[in-house]
Simulated assay, not measured.
Amino acid sequence: MIHFEREVFDPVLIEEMLKHFHHVNIAMNDEDGYPYVVPLNYGFEIKNDKLFVYIHCMKIGKKINLLQKDARVCLEFSAFNDFPDRPYKGHRHDYRSVIAKGRLKLVDANEDLETFKRGYDLLYLCNGRPITPLESRKVMPNLYIGKIECDWNDVSAKSEFPLRTIEDVPFVDVYEMEEDTTS
């Protein structure tokens, strides 16, 4: 990391950042030596100094084939706010990002219903969508819940502007503020 002053260390701030992102990009190892990256909905929880990220996916397809061969993944969460015509504190954009590495475990409802339901419920944290309770479905969906476990040492975060409190995490609407040209 070149701009160490932009790094976010506080787990409380990182957790708040994760609440504001709309999707996660997950990179997997492809057989041809290139990364394979897909955007997905997600849910998460932090416990015992670990970040647990939950995703869902169908039981067939390229993603499943890759994950069954190599469960190592890299997660990228980000948001970018652009304001090219109204500089704020000497900048023309703002961003938040979190990168995490971990291992993904595919959870089948027939084998571990408790973990499946927990992951399923947490998926709806992302985007603030209303949840369709699993119990209300007529049939169990033909999908896996992916549970990704990341050690806190494998989680890093950045922000264009310093984040000191959770109130600093949402983007500032520069068009609603008095012009600030300081650097």
Rank of each mutant, 00 (worst) to 15 (best):
E31C: 04
D32T: 03
N29V: 15
A109Q: 05
I60R: 12
P84A: 10
T132V: 11
H56G: 02
G146D: 07
Q68E: 15
D70M: 05
F44I: 08
L143H: 04
K105C: 05
N81L: 08
N142G: 12
N29S: 14
V139T: 10
N142D: 15
L143F: 06
A109I: 08
R72L: 06
N142Q: 11
V107H: 07
E111M: 12
K105Y: 03
V73N: 07
L123A: 07
D49N: 13
R118L: 15
G102A: 03
Y54F: 14
D94G: 13
I46S: 06
C74M: 11
R103F: 12
P39C: 07
L113F: 02
K147H: 12
R72M: 04
R118S: 11
R92Q: 03
N65Y: 10
G90T: 08
N29C: 13
E76C: 13
N29M: 11
N41G: 02
G128L: 06
K101M: 13
R86L: 14
I60L: 10
H56Q: 08
L125Y: 05
F77H: 09
D30H: 10
Y120S: 09
V38T: 12
I60E: 15
N25H: 12
T132S: 04
L66T: 08
K59P: 01
L134P: 07
S136K: 14
